[in-house]
Design a protein around this nucleic acid. Structure first.
Lengths: 159, 159
DNA sequence: TATTGTTATACTCTATAACTATA
DNA sequence: TATAGTTATAGAGTATAACAATA
């Protein structure tokens, strides 16, 4: 309660309460972060979903649309409109896979690569973590690494 | 790098990279949490937004719709449909404020109070944090407390 | 027959603008 | 005139189902 780093913390000792509180605050922080990201990404001329799609694509490893849908955890049918936007903006190209002509491979263009870098910067905007000391930041980073590595029961691709 | 709790952590020493990595992983974790929450809340018969609205309401302190919109950080116009759903489900009542007949106060019903408790449980579901030790959980909790307390430049209501 | 991408469709969420009834 | 809630509307995100081309 009166610890130096935490002005008004949750009740220690009850793991469930502690975890629940952490979850709600993580969601709160993430919501604020998303808010910022959406605004900044709009300034780049992208909708949030299109930006996330571009961000998921690896410029050095073209991907079939099917896999992008999987990475975005959404239905294939949605990827069509998303890639339409990115293609119209000259950021991505669709190429028919010669091996399997059903598949269309998504290739990030040069402009797409530059835009993706900018999107990556936005997605990494850490202004909300500015109140942490570098040590605290390192600790937080370690903990979220551990959570995203091991804590996902089902589908958790990991970057 | 080879610390016991972190198998493959980010590059230490560069604060910006550390922070960016933490942000992206927080977003990733939050996305997975939201996914779970949306599914569980749907099983309660609520849409995600309606559940969040009910969750924001304090059963012991009725609120004008205006303030709910502010807490949800969305436009007033959206609150109408949200409260319509909650009222239809018998979870919330609208009462005209006698002091200012323009205002409608949102009162959580008895059924609403029970449903809100269940929503709160869902919103506190910490299965994704299951991989952390209790000590790590306490540390994480302290850190997210610190972030959500101090790290919000603008509108950050806090619970 | 199964799969990839697409289309059509519907529902939800959210913002803007115009309206009403109060103040 | 200003404000609270509402309505109408539009854009974005996402899911389901049906379809064409390909395997």
């Amino acid at each position: 309660m009166a610890q130096p780093t935490v002005p008004t913390g949750p009740d220690r000792g009850d793991r469930a309460a502690l975890a629940g509180d952490a979850v709600r605050r993580i969601m709160h922080i993430a919501s604020a972060m998303r808010h910022y990201q959406d605004v900044e990404v709009a300034e780049l001329g992208l909708t949030p979903a299109a930006a996330r799609a571009l961000h998921e694509l690896d410029p050095d490893r073209p991907l079939p649309a099917r896999d992008l849908a999987e990475q975005l955890r959404c239905d294939r049918s949605n990827v069509t409109a998303l890639v339409d936007k990115l293609e119209q903006a000259g950021l991505v190209e669709r190429r028919v896979d010669p091996t399997d002509r059903r598949q269309k491979t998504l290739v990030v263009t040069e402009a797409g690569r530059r835009m993706r870098d900018r999107v990556h910067q936005v997605m990494s905007d850490s202004r909300l973590l500015g109140g942490l000391t570098t040590d605290e930041l390192a600790t937080l980073s370690q903990l979220v690494w551990k959570v995203s590595d091991g804590g996902c029961p089902e589908q958790c691709g990991g970057e």
